[in-house]
């Protein structure tokens, strides 16, 4: 379980352009379930996801992941935590341009000191699973939005993380590809992973795969 306790994030604190992105948010995210955080653009969803995913430290508040406080970890341990526990799927896919699909999939494995054989075995398994085998050597620039999103998901899964964080995963997809994405998410739940999704896409937040839903506005949680 992930516990978020009174977390706030203030950008440019004490400056003229101070911005409260997340304001005193507390919530609990159950394990092996799909949690969606919805809200309009600028409501603080992405910042909250970044804090939960240890990509950014909160200005105040604490976060516990399976009982371990991550807000107090040093940068070195945060990297380790991200590497071992979190898989990120970004809104704009964030694939490294001009690299092949396979090379993009290798990226999280590179610092681990595995051999090429291990890289390839893991990568091909995921490509197969996500129907991307034929694109292994394709340049990422040439992929369609749906294909790029599936590559991004494959990359998030390559280290076999227990938690998948997806920020507006359907923002750059049409409805057909969004449905495909939901199918992939369904498969991930079967693998007992915890999914945390930020989205303001009704296809996502109204889907039957969602177990828990939080609404955000102006950096705060809104309760219906």
């Amino acid at each position: 379980m992930i516990e978020v306790i009174k977390v706030s994030k203030i950008y440019n604190q004490h400056k003229h352009n101070e911005c409260v992105a997340v304001d005193n948010v507390s919530l609990e995210i159950p394990e092996k379930a799909v949690t969606v955080i919805c809200g309009p653009s600028g409501s603080g969803k992405t910042t909250l996801l970044s804090i939960i995913g240890a990509m950014i430290k909160p200005t105040s508040g604490r976060i516990f992941v399976n009982g371990q406080e991550i807000t107090s970890l040093s940068e070195r341990f945060l990297s380790k935590f991200r590497r071992e526990n979190i898989g990120f799927v970004f809104q704009k896919f964030n694939l490294i341009r001009n690299l092949t699909v396979l090379q993009n999939l290798f990226i999280p494995l590179i610092p681990l000191g595995f051999s090429k054989k291990v890289f390839e075995k893991k990568a091909y398994m995921l490509l197969e699973k996500l129907n991307l085998s034929n694109l292994a050597n394709a340049n990422c620039e040439q992929l369609s939005g749906g294909e790029a999103q599936r590559v991004a998901i494959a990359r998030a899964l390559i280290n076999d993380p227990k938690i998948i964080i997806a920020d507006e995963p359907s923002a750059n997809l049409d409805s057909h590809n969004t449905q495909n994405l939901l199918e992939i998410f369904r498969e991930l739940i079967k693998e007992n992973r915890t999914l945390i999704i930020a989205s303001h896409d009704p296809i996502i937040y109204s889907s039957d795969i969602i177990n828990v839903r939080f609404n955000m506005r102006d950096g705060r949680l809104i309760y219906d």
Partner: peptide, 8 residues
């Protein structure tokens, strides 16, 4: 790279 688990 850091988000994907790379160390400094």
């Amino acid at each position: 790279l850091k988000a994907l688990g790379w160390d400094t």
